[in-house]
């Protein structure tokens, strides 16, 4: 296990422009919106906010689950905010996004897991921004097919659901989730609407082996999943699950080659890759494939 105080590898350097981050952060705050960039302490915030890209995190700033790798706050969230759909749509316009990425906290407290509210946001984004492409990164929605149907009927260009880690580690780091259920979400979505791209993401450095990563990639690809992102787990604080290893950029390149061999059309594999990192680029690569 490595320690947070251990020297960071040279490849984990990011650019940070305070003025750009403040501008986007204040705009979001002023509109009452959350971004996963801020709430999950994303290391790429400097790069993304400087290029006026952000990933909206809807349905509040508290998650009903408590994954041990994640720094989003957990607890009992507030009811969905009816002003959120128009605010997100307006912010998308203000930022001039061509590809909007929206994610959610898990809402096990809501009967539909928040799918109806999410769908309303997609509708409103499209109404206000007619030529936009939309990527919806959902929770497992408790595996409820009716809730997944609601999301599919909203016709996101990409429906994403992150498997986050290998099967063996679910019980220790992804409490309340099930590996097979997450695969089932991806499988169901692809079977029901083959025209909607599906996408997943996972982290390395949580204690998995490279063989287990290959097995995960095969399992995910078997669901028909089109796009995968692979990134380095970075421990948010000492209260979170310890980091097991730093994976080198060369090894990430090997994962990318292996994923492409399995048939994924979009692969983003690098230490700082996150599920929405360079999302517009991976969408256009997949759509043009």
């Amino acid at each position: 296990m490595t320690d947070n105080k251990e020297k960071k590898p040279e490849w984990l350097k990011v650019k940070y422009n305070g003025a750009a981050v403040r501008e986007v952060a204040e705009m979001m705050k002023g509109m009452g919106l959350n971004t996963v960039c801020r709430e999950a302490n994303c290391p790429n915030i400097g790069e993304c906010f400087a290029s006026r890209t952000a990933t909206f995190m809807i349905l509040g700033d508290k998650c009903t689950r408590d994954c041990r790798f994640c720094s989003v706050a957990h607890g009992l969230p507030l009811p969905p905010d009816p002003d959120e759909p128009p605010s997100v749509a307006k912010a998308v316009k203000k930022l001039g996004l061509g590809h909007a990425v929206v994610t959610m906290v898990t809402r096990d407290d809501l009967p539909d897991g928040g799918a109806g509210h999410f769908a309303a946001i997609i509708d409103e984004i499209r109404r206000v921004n007619p030529n936009i492409t939309v990527e919806a990164l959902i929770s497992d929605l408790k595996g409820d097919e009716r809730s997944i149907d609601v999301m599919l009927e909203a016709r996101p260009d990409i429906l994403g659901h992150n498997v986050e880690t290998i099967s063996r580690l679910y019980s220790s780091v992804r409490l309340g989730a099930e590996y097979e259920r997450s695969l089932g979400v991806l499988r169901y979505a692809k079977e029901k609407r083959p025209d909607i791209y599906t996408k997943t993401g996972f982290m390395v450095g949580l204690g998995e082996t490279d063989d287990e990563i290959m097995s995960l990639l095969r399992d995910v690809r078997k669901t028909g999943c089109d796009i995968v992102t692979i990134g380095q787990y970075l421990r948010p604080s000492e209260a979170h699950v310890p980091l097991d290893r730093y994976v080198t950029p060369e090894q990430f390149s090997k994962y990318e080659i292996q994923a492409k061999k399995l048939g994924f059309t979009g692969v983003v594999s690098s230490p700082l890759a996150r599920s929405s990192y360079h999302a517009a680029k991976s969408f256009s690569e997949t759509a043009n494939n």
Binding site: K8, K13, K15, R235
Partner: peptide, 20 residues
């Protein structure tokens, strides 16, 4: 403006801070 003037280590990464 934009030159990296110092680096800050956080829990996750080293951030290269640009001049405003």
């Amino acid at each position: 403006a934009g030159d990296v003037i110092y680096e800050v280590e956080t829990d996750k990464v080293v951030a290269e801070i640009e001049a405003d």
